[in-house]
Write a protein that binds this DNA or RNA. Structure first.
Length: 213
DNA sequence: TAGGCCATCTGGTCCT
DNA sequence: AGGACCAGATGGCCTA
């Protein structure tokens, strides 16, 4: 609530800002420059000419031009506001999609809402775990003995051989990895830059793989 | 109080 | 030309 409302506050602030910048009420204290398109470039007006008639003509010209500039400014402003609106909607759609993804992912015990990046990573791990489940189930249907090494590794337990269980060995025939490690995509146990992905993998694997047995 | 997460704005780029 | 997408900037909220 607070974030959204604060966003609206900011939006209204921007609108206020825009309304402050509205040149429909502009006078001659500022003149438009050719580089306005590249940003807000209002410069103090240069000293007015001291000539008589030419000054009048110049004022007429400038007044007409100012009106035109005001129109251009309003058009730009409207375009920008429409673009902001589309961008807001686009991000809302993205967040809706993330919420939909969260809803199909298993909830953590403490029921804390996954952040965006956690949602994506966990979804990746979850898909990988499900794939492994299918693969192992398929293997089991052919040779149940193949399951033993895999099951012994669940819960990050040491392998029967004494060395700490490593995911690559547990899933030696695995076709893919749930890890987002930048350096080693073939090893689910590889420590990534963030350190906690391995926990996600173990969690997803231990939580869902045994459920089919 | 620093850091993480988030929403929004904005300008640039690409696509239709 | 206008919309979609993207990345950077900014500022608010929350938590350790």
């Amino acid at each position: 609530m607070s974030i959204v409302s604060s966003g609206y506050i900011r939006l209204s602030t921007m609108e206020t800002l825009y309304s402050d910048m509205d040149t429909s009420s502009c006078d001659y204290s500022f003149t438009h420059t050719d580089d306005e398109d590249s940003g807000s470039s209002l410069h103090p007006a240069s000293p007015a000419s001291s000539c008589g008639k030419p000054e009048l003509q110049q004022k007429k010209r400038r007044r007409g031009r100012a009106r035109n500039e005001a129109t251009v400014h309003v058009v730009k402003k409207n375009r920008r506001m429409k673009a902001n609106d589309r961008e807001r909607n686009r991000m809302h759609n993205l967040n809706d999609a993330l919420d939909a993804l969260r809803s199909v992912l298993p909830a953590f015990p403490d029921d804390t809402k996954l952040t965006k990046i956690e949602t994506l990573r966990f979804a990746h791990n979850y898909i990988w775990a499900l794939s492994e489940t299918i693969r192992i189930a398929d293997q089991k249907s052919r040779d149940p003995a193949l399951l033993l090494p895999v099951l012994s590794c669940m819960g990050d337990a040491p392998s029967p051989g004494g060395d700490s269980c490593s995911w690559p060995s547990c899933a030696s025939s695995s076709s893919s990895s749930p890890s987002y490690s930048n350096s080693d995509t073939s090893s689910p146990a590889a420590m990534d830059d963030f350190g906690y992905l391995q926990t996600d993998v173990v969690y997803s694997y231990t939580k869902f793989v045994p459920s089919i047995y």
